[in-house]
Amino acid sequence: MIPSASEWLLFLPGFLLGLLVAPALASAGISMRIGGDTLAALSYAQVATAGAMLGTLLGWAPGLGAWALALSAGLLMMPWRTNAARTRGGTTHALLLLLLAWACALLLADNHPDARLLGTASIEGQLLLIRLPDVVSVGALCILGLLITIATHRAWTREQLLTWQRPGRQSRQKIIALGRETGLITLIAAGTLSVGVFATLALTLIPAYLVWSRCHGLRSALHWCALLGVVAHVLAFVLSLLLDQVYAAVVVVVLGFLLAGVQGVRFRT
């Protein structure tokens, strides 16, 4: 059933928010892939869900709870993540965090009806029916995350790609890593509160995977990721409305089709 013009307007805030969140997450996927920690996106999204639930129970805004808990978990995990990256060992820490956050979220959902509602919304995503105040708060969170990520991107990428050591600059490197982590976690929290846990993972994982071996430079990879994020969001949004399906599932399917469709294609700028 095709929605009427007034119904399209009803969904406009969610659509506009998606235009901000989807390319931001897709571009952040490049940074996560450089750091070898894409799986951490899933863990932090799950922690953000538990945080939103906890925030609701404490009378806070869900966004604040999601951001605060995900950020706390991220900063606490930083020493382990740094060591894991150094030894290229590292997915165990992310999986442990995921399990812990999932158990917390399940316990909260089982003991409070509001937490259960939030838990369902975090799986399905609440972009289609998101309320205007939530659009503002999630949008602000996303913009904050983007600004921090952009501010730290160059310096952090330099530390990752130029594999020489400057022992005198270790404290500076730690501050940069801290900033980068804060930016990414803020973006993931915004994604969890809007498109849901698994759509957040799909948006950080698939566009970056698509461009990784095809683009000829970092800048073009970031641009292509953002474009793929926008295309996936627009297609998924329209299809989910037209077919009356869950947005989060549709966006994963759309990204899957994009993945299959661009095999053998090289991206140039």
């Binding site: 594999t163 020489w164 050591q165 022992p167 990784w212 071996s213 430079g217």
Partner: peptide, 20 residues
């Protein structure tokens, strides 16, 4: 101090050009 270790130039896959 800048220390260029032996393994500095090991191949690392990814969309990184010389210009980058």
């Amino acid at each position: 101090v800048l220390h260029l270790p032996q393994q500095a130039a090991l191949p690392r896959s990814g969309p990184f050009s010389v210009a980058d």
